Measured scan of single mutants.
Amino acid sequence: EPLWIRPDAPSRCTWQLGRPASESPHHHTAPAKSPKILPDILKKIGDTPMVRINKIGKKFGLKCELLAKCEFFNAGGSVKDRISLRMIEDAERDGTLKPGDTIIEPTSGNTGIGLALAAAVRGYRCIIVMPEKMSSEKVDVLRALGAEIVRTPTNARFDSPESHVGVAWRLKNEIPNSHILDQYRNASNPLAHYDTTADEILQQCDGKLDMLVASVGTGGTITGIARKLKEKCPGCRIIGVDPEGSILAEPEELNQTEQTTYEVEGIGYDFIPTVLDRTVVDKWFKSNDEEAFTFARMLIAQEGLLCGGSAGSTVAVAVKAAQELQEGQRCVVILPDSVRNYMTKFLSDRWMLQKGFLKEEDLTEKKPWWWHLRVQELGLSAPLTVLPTITCGHTIEILREKGFDQAPVVDEAGVILGMVTLGNMLSSLLAGKVQPSDQVGKVIYKQFKQIRLTDTLGRLSHILEMDHFALVVHEQIQYHSTGKSSQRQMVFGVVTAIDLLNFVAAQERDQK
């Protein structure tokens, strides 16, 4: 057995438009009618409502009807409940999964919650491996369901041993009777949507819809739904939504950006999952974080739909894509998950301010006199920076000697690579993860907040409520011999709460 199987392995699926269902090699399930009293909570997966979006479509000038398939009504709160249950049931049916076995899954959280929910009911041990950027709410729900959680670096490539995929496979090879159901490759993922989600949409719309818009992560949702719609409703256009920084969209030119990270969760990847059939997507749109969270908040405030950030991405694209539809036509959007997962993220004004998705003037509360002053007023001194090749031991000596707790790590040209902190280095040394002679590049981390000289002290204040420091950066445009230009970030300084307090105190003292 291989040590790991690539999540982007070539698909062996034989589905073709027009091929009889009787030739399918898979076990198919028909939607079942729910009894009045459910035998367990797993029976509350599927049969989610279709809700008309009344205000947002009109606000953006849509002539067509805009409908939302509300997947956050599933038992675990997301569309991923469907595939989690289906993968477990299919693994039980073919004898792969037996009582007492362990389920391991690399996930952005929602599939993990679905699997942990099913594992709690069915009696399996469950280990979820997820990147650090995923919300604390997801972690809390997983723990409450009895799952064990392993976190991995957000910026690790999918084929790196440190990625959530790599760590999951390492655990599988170490733990007896453990299984990775593997949402990236498992046919049960798109089949769950082909058999149930798509049929529900067709039934709820009486077979009449002209466009379907869905955000894409593993691709199982859009693949399964689109294949069924292509068979039953061939005139329906399928629109895929991919965040900026991901590479799922086609044509490839759409993916060209210097951005590699994004805040919206559960969609987009740096590889093409095996289950994603991009041939059934008629057109791709890219979405960005700001519009995703703005539209998610709009869905909550104006439509009462308590959905997550990827739902915002989907609707932001839908109001663009559906401009081509006329009166009497219908566009369906998939709202994948609930706001429950993001209470401390985009639902929080403070978080939105820190990330730059909300401006101070958007909030009406009274601010102190210094709130709208610029960061450049602080008069920061030149920063202490270190090269990635310097040793951890030497870096600790320098920081202690100069009285700093942290320093930016830059390359020879001064471009920011990340940050090192005294606390992080000492804990890594004590844990045996690094040696004093190791290069400081081994303990770089990139989960820090950046701020510009033109940003306000109010925004800085919000950042420092949650973080010990902020890195002050400025952009530099560099022209190359080819005539092309590129933008790079340079370090201007490091600012802490002490710097802000000293500035405010000094100004008030001078005024007296």
Rank of each mutant, 00 (worst) to 15 (best):
Q435I: 15
E412V: 12
G403L: 04
L384K: 12
R400K: 12
L457H: 00
Q511N: 13
F285D: 09
P336Q: 09
V281I: 04
I390E: 06
D405F: 11
V339A: 09
T314H: 09
Q447H: 14
P408H: 02
D510E: 13
F357L: 08
I444S: 15
T314N: 06
V317F: 06
G240F: 02
L429K: 09
E265S: 00
A431R: 10
D411I: 12
L453K: 12
K484N: 12
K320V: 05
E377L: 12
A292M: 01
V339F: 06
Q326W: 09
Y479H: 05
E258H: 13
K402L: 12
E361G: 13
V415M: 09
Y262G: 03
E365A: 13
N424P: 10
L378C: 02
V317L: 11
L325V: 05
M298H: 11
L325T: 05
E263P: 03
D438R: 13
P388Y: 10
R452S: 08
E244S: 09
A316N: 11
L373H: 11
Q507P: 10
H462A: 14
V275A: 08
I390Q: 11
G379N: 12
F404Y: 08
A506L: 05
C331N: 01
S310Q: 03
G312L: 01
M343R: 07
T274C: 02
S428R: 06
F285N: 08
E253Y: 07
Q511T: 14
K402Q: 14
I444P: 13
Q511F: 11
P251F: 01
L325F: 13
T364V: 05
L305S: 02
Q259V: 11
G423E: 13
G403S: 14
K442W: 13
L358E: 09
W371A: 09
V440G: 10
A316C: 05
G240E: 08
V410T: 14
G266S: 01
F357M: 01
H480K: 11
E361C: 12
K484F: 15
A407M: 05
A506H: 09
A311D: 09
V472L: 13
G312T: 01
Q511G: 14
M298R: 12
N341Y: 01
V410Y: 14
A382V: 15
V443K: 10
A249F: 05
A301H: 09
Q329N: 07
A296N: 05
G423A: 07
G304D: 00
V275S: 01
D282V: 11
V319H: 04
D438L: 14
L299R: 03
T482R: 14
A505E: 12
M490Y: 13
V410W: 08
P408K: 03
C307D: 02
K484L: 15
I498T: 12
E244W: 09
R374I: 15
S310R: 01
G483N: 04
I300H: 05
V504M: 10
T395G: 06
G414Y: 08
G240W: 03
T294I: 14
V443E: 13
F448L: 14
A407E: 11
A292C: 09
A301W: 09
Y262W: 06
L417D: 11
M419W: 13
G328Y: 07
E263T: 07
R509H: 14
C307H: 06
K320A: 07
E475A: 06
V317S: 06
Q302P: 04
T364D: 06
L384A: 09
Q259T: 11
K283F: 09
S348G: 03
S338R: 08
E508N: 11
R488C: 06
T257A: 12
G268N: 00
Q406L: 06
Q489R: 03
E465S: 13
N255H: 03
L417S: 15
H372M: 08
R509Y: 09
E250F: 04
Q326M: 15
A292K: 03
F404R: 03
R278F: 02
K484V: 15
G458S: 15
T364E: 11
S437E: 15
G458K: 09
T421V: 14
V504K: 13
G309W: 01
D270G: 05
V319E: 08
G483E: 15
L347D: 01
Q507M: 15
L325G: 03
V315T: 07
L430K: 11
M298S: 03
G414D: 13
R509Q: 14
V315L: 11
L347V: 05
M343V: 08
K433E: 12
T314K: 09
V275H: 00
I272R: 05
L306D: 01
G441F: 15
G423Y: 04
K484S: 14
A470V: 15
L501C: 07
F448P: 08
Q487F: 15
I451P: 15
V275W: 01
L417M: 14
S461H: 09
L358S: 08
V319N: 04
E475N: 11
Q435F: 13
L464W: 09
Y269R: 02
S486G: 12
S310M: 01
K367S: 10
S348L: 07
K286H: 00
L430A: 14
L358F: 11
K433Q: 14
I416R: 07
I498W: 09
A301N: 12
P388L: 14
C331A: 13
S338Q: 08
S428Q: 11
V315P: 06
Q354D: 11
E244C: 07
L429A: 04
Q478G: 15
G266E: 01
T496H: 08
A413D: 02
R400V: 12
S287A: 12
H372N: 13
V317H: 08
Y445R: 08
T274N: 03
M466H: 12
Q376M: 11
F271T: 00
V410N: 14
G304T: 00
V280K: 10
S381P: 15
Q376L: 15
V264N: 00
D362V: 13
Q487P: 07
T279K: 13
Q507W: 13
S381Y: 09
S338T: 10
L254S: 04
D289W: 03
W370L: 15
M419Q: 12
L299Y: 03
D349T: 05
V443A: 13
T391S: 15
H474C: 11
I463C: 14
V420W: 00
I463S: 09
D242M: 01
L500P: 15
L306G: 00
W351N: 00
D411N: 13
R452I: 04
W369F: 09
T395R: 08
P368T: 07
E365K: 13
E263C: 07
T421H: 15
D405K: 08
V434S: 03
W284I: 01
T454Q: 11
V491Q: 07
T385N: 12
M352Q: 01
A470Y: 04
K449S: 12
Q326K: 14
I477F: 15
V440K: 05
N424R: 12
G379V: 15
F404Q: 05
E244H: 10
S338P: 08
T294A: 14
G418P: 03
Y479Q: 10
P251E: 05
V333F: 12
K345R: 06
Q439F: 15
V375I: 14
I463G: 13
M425T: 15
G403T: 10
G393I: 14
E475I: 10
V491E: 09
C331Q: 05
D438V: 15
Q326D: 13
E401F: 13
K359N: 15
H372C: 15
A413I: 11
Q447V: 11
V317W: 07
G245C: 08
A318P: 02
A431H: 04
L363I: 12
S485R: 12
S461N: 13
S481V: 12
V241C: 04
F469E: 15
H394E: 11
Q507F: 13
P436L: 15
L276D: 01
V420M: 13
R297A: 01
A318L: 02
V264M: 08
G266F: 02
Q256K: 12
A318D: 03
R488W: 14
P368E: 10
V333E: 08
D455T: 13
D270R: 01
L305W: 00
Q447R: 14
